[in-house]
Write a protein that binds this DNA or RNA. Sequence first.
DNA 1: TATGAATGAGAATTCATTCAT
DNA 2: CATGAATGAATTCTCATTCAT
Lengths: 213, 213, 213, 213
Amino acid sequence: MMPVGQPKWRRRKEARPGEIVAAALEVFAEKGFAAARLDDIAARAGVSKGALYLYFETKQELFAAVVRDAISPNIAVVEAAAAAIDLPFAQTSRVLLGRAADLLASSPVGPVAKMVIAESRNFPELARVWHDEVVSRVLGVMSGLIERAQARGEIRPGDPRFHALALIGPLLMGVLWGEVLVPVGAAPIDLKALASQHIETVLHGLLAEGGRR
Amino acid sequence: MMPVGQPKWRRRKEARPGEIVAAALEVFAEKGFAAARLDDIAARAGVSKGALYLYFETKQELFAAVVRDAISPNIAVVEAAAAAIDLPFAQTSRVLLGRAADLLASSPVGPVAKMVIAESRNFPELARVWHDEVVSRVLGVMSGLIERAQARGEIRPGDPRFHALALIGPLLMGVLWGEVLVPVGAAPIDLKALASQHIETVLHGLLAEGGRR
Amino acid sequence: MMPVGQPKWRRRKEARPGEIVAAALEVFAEKGFAAARLDDIAARAGVSKGALYLYFETKQELFAAVVRDAISPNIAVVEAAAAAIDLPFAQTSRVLLGRAADLLASSPVGPVAKMVIAESRNFPELARVWHDEVVSRVLGVMSGLIERAQARGEIRPGDPRFHALALIGPLLMGVLWGEVLVPVGAAPIDLKALASQHIETVLHGLLAEGGRR
Amino acid sequence: MMPVGQPKWRRRKEARPGEIVAAALEVFAEKGFAAARLDDIAARAGVSKGALYLYFETKQELFAAVVRDAISPNIAVVEAAAAAIDLPFAQTSRVLLGRAADLLASSPVGPVAKMVIAESRNFPELARVWHDEVVSRVLGVMSGLIERAQARGEIRPGDPRFHALALIGPLLMGVLWGEVLVPVGAAPIDLKALASQHIETVLHGLLAEGGRR
DNA sequence: TATGAATGAGAATTCATTCAT
DNA sequence: CATGAATGAATTCTCATTCAT
């Protein structure tokens, strides 16, 4: 039925690390670093426990790989998006926040952020990677946009970093809400809706048109 | 085996639970639940390992106690503050955000939040307590203020919950920043300053006076 | 109502050791030596854990006291009964087995025997006490009666010790049955009935009158 | 940390459980359940402590396995022997008691019975297994033989279960004697001799031929 | 005497890591 | 490359014993 001596196919060994990291992401996100068992990760990846050690030296290495892998693809996207747009700040920020909401909803940034928050003391290196590769780049992009808009007189003065936090803070809150509280019965938050209401609020202010300062 | 003349222990029944919880808070905040060793907690509390079990049945119980103890005193403060103020929303929110910044800076809410985020999957009950006792109460207070202000026409329409997130999200981000990134070298954030810039931004909008939508 | 300055009564300290031993018997019989907790014993005796150590040096001492206390009163009874009777062996043995059945049913010999069996390796001294104070005395009495009956030609020759076992073995089995199997759902055994059927069987033989050998 | 060239372990998956159970039997029989240390069992089995958990979930599981393993092979033997014989009761019972003596002397029934007696309260399930798989089966076989012999008029009337106890009780006593008292210096009992004297006593009665009732 | 808070050695259990196959 | 049995250090939890009061 099968050509003799012709193995149907062999699982490409190049795929393995990715499969393992994906399985590890699930388990780490679910249990946290310490409570995650390599047994579970191996089982979920469909390999033996020993095989993990063919690709990663230690549990910590694997954890680091999970964080790095989750980060890298997403950052460039943001930076590229920011660079590609050249519109008034109001427009730009609307687009960017929409993109961010999509990204946060569709990528494992939420779980990974949770892990980094949880293990920042135990793995300072990870927090550092996260800071350098994610937070400061995102904040850099945002601050850049804001500064330029300020220079053009489009938006109010003020610490651009704080402004950036004002823009993305609520989105991050929404993500953590989804990670932490929804599994426990809280009403889910629609990130897209949050993003679009929020950007208008921040742009025009909470106070009604005739609102006094 | 024991230095003579050195009393091995001193009877401190009433004080002990508090001391233990305080020590546990430090260690849990530093290491996370799983990586925290009861040995360390006991040592930091100045008691023996066994003494822990005189007051708390298990490590999990102790963890729960830490979270509960950190929460209770702070929530009433917020609710009371909100109820006590009867001013236009702009004033009220300025005061409240200032208070919140003080509270976040001076209480262990940050570390505890980190712990809850980290262990929400392993201890859903804790996430539930946090939700019921902290998040929904705070959000309830804020939403109430916002709804009333909307009814008075003071502020824009829109989901009050989202508006509430817009107000406090950045502060929480600031707290997590302090917990996670500052220890690895990021520039500290002045919560007070963040709060006061943020409230003005949100109230009046990022766009400059003549800013177009 | 009560003469002033006249305490109603004070628990006589002489009663304490007995109360403790009684409580300990219950707990040891239930859990075995190692699994018995001094906390439980103290609670059941209505004293503090520390008080145990006013009367007994160690847990082992207490265990030994339990065994000794349960033994001593009962042995003399048996020896006295045997010495007091001077009748043909058939009569004597009927009376003795009846007495034994009563004794086994009404005294803690069963539980204590169970404990001694269980802990004989860990507390050889106890097994020795049990042997010297109980088994060999009882067996001595019985063997004496049997030897004398043999000498009078009343009963068959044969090792008197084996004959003694033939007489009391089934009773002991009945006791262990009650200790071990009844709590687990087995039908209870009526020791009195067992004793009276058994003695006739042993005296006259299982085989029917005309039974061939 | 490890002598080089010394293989730390050898793969013995099929043999291991049996070796562990055998080692556990020794240690449990010696110390009782609670006082037995898994360290000792592991050492005696020539494996590490951790290896125990590859085959048995908990100490209790291991204990249960010990009891079960000791039981199963021996029961069928008895039942088969009883079924295979079709002789007058006197003959049958002589053969069976002889066989029983052999079995009790050569198998770990004694130690296991001791363990079951000791831990019946803590592990009711074990007592139940012992009752269902051992006691009631053996008693069933014996009672059946006795009832049929009674129907044929071969032996006296009377509760067959009591008769069965009369037959095997002394043997069990002999076994417990060997377990409990011999190690502390009591004279050993020759089970074979006990069995053969006992069966004649029970069959024909203790009373001498012309003995009066 | 009596208490009970405190101790700390001890034991079961877990799990990252190794390595013969 | 891959496996999975085996290891053993690490950690939680228990409980007999002590001792200030």
